[in-house]
Amino acid sequence: MRLVLTGGGTGGHIYPALAIGREAAEREPDSSLLYIGTTKGLESRIVPNQGIPFESIDITGFRRSLSMENVKTIVRFLQGVKRSKELLRSFKPDAVVGTGGYVCGPVVYAASRLGIPTLIHEQNVVPGLTNKFLSRYADAVAVSFADSLPHFSGKRNVLHAGNPVASMVAKANRSEGFKSLGLPEGTPFVLAVGGSRGAKALNEAILEMLPGLESLADVHFVFVTGERYYEEALARLQELPAKVKGRVHALHYINNMPEVLSAASLVVSRAGASSLAEITSLGIPSILVPSPNVTNNHQQPNAESLAVAGAAVMILEKDLNGGALLSNLSAIMKDRSRREAMAVAARKLGMPKAASAIYEQIKGILK
């Protein structure tokens, strides 16, 4: 299979595309991949490190208010379509897969104009503007959440497949997770992570909460601060009581997140689609604090889908503080039967075969 992948801006768009590409390469070892992104997005650094050929186009997103910048964006879009057509004619793909972000717009649209089969994947419950636009032209749509299906009711080939990053974590080695943290296997620990860059509001609530961990004598706490907040967090942690300090492990970043995640007893996290796909694939209970600083507030519906199913507790950022976090965390960690019920509910939502399902959907449009 010759496959073009496109998606950019954030890891939430990039890693699903890479997971689909990896599935195709595993199923058909003679496959050829090409990734089309922008030089400004994270994909320009992440994709080449994966050994996948990378080409770029120049494109920006639309602003949500009347602006001359939108006129420039239309011009860039048309230029992007032209550049994409050149790349597609040269590579001659069997199919094009878009996973969101404004770079997908000209690439998937160009493919549809050239008669190349196309599939788009939507990670969030509420679709982004680009995927709403592209759904008119794509031959197939795959979604991560069942709640997304009504948004694509006009399409025939729509599949609730899950998020393909779930397939990447499904085989994570739990023992390696404990080992990398220097904890004896089986140690109960809470993993708190606000994304690769950290989340200030979440970090503040955690730091406010940590002294209260004295009431959870056997529980360790793995605190992923994000690089920009790491030094400040370390200084604050020195003020903790000795009984707590020895059980708090502060890191600015985790390179082996699937392994660490698979070993966690409970996760405190934002509600990005890829994070939730990993959590549910592994069946981990969670406390979710959706970021209010994302387009369309899309993390809140993501978190609500897990909370309604009983797999997570959702705390809105406006209600977040150390007391609220400690209260919910303690209630879950002190109630093993509740933790197990949440894990079962999470696992029911998890779709570890998502990448395989999407691969089969691509094969279907090729026929």
Rank of each mutant, 00 (worst) to 15 (best):
E122F: 01
P292E: 13
V158F: 00
V107N: 04
E55S: 13
A343L: 12
M314N: 08
D139V: 04
A277R: 02
D218W: 02
G198V: 05
R45M: 13
S144G: 14
V193C: 14
M351G: 02
A307I: 08
R22G: 11
L159T: 15
G364N: 15
K179G: 00
E122L: 03
M342E: 04
G21V: 08
T280M: 13
L325R: 02
A307D: 11
L181H: 00
R45L: 14
Y229G: 02
S167F: 03
T60Y: 11
V143I: 12
R89I: 10
R174W: 05
T118R: 11
V75N: 07
T295N: 06
A263S: 12
M168F: 07
L216S: 10
H160P: 02
P150S: 11
A192H: 00
L288T: 07
S90P: 00
I46N: 01
L325M: 10
G310M: 05
N49L: 11
N302V: 12
E259Q: 15
V260Y: 01
H160W: 14
A345L: 04
S274N: 15
P292A: 05
E214F: 06
E239I: 05
S167W: 01
I362K: 08
A355I: 07
S305R: 13
A271P: 03
E185I: 06
H220N: 14
V268T: 03
V219A: 07
L326F: 12
Y102F: 15
V71K: 04
P106Q: 11
G11F: 11
I358V: 14
E69P: 00
N321K: 04
K82C: 13
A170T: 14
D139C: 05
N131S: 09
G100F: 02
C104H: 04
V81N: 03
P258E: 03
Q299H: 08
S67N: 12
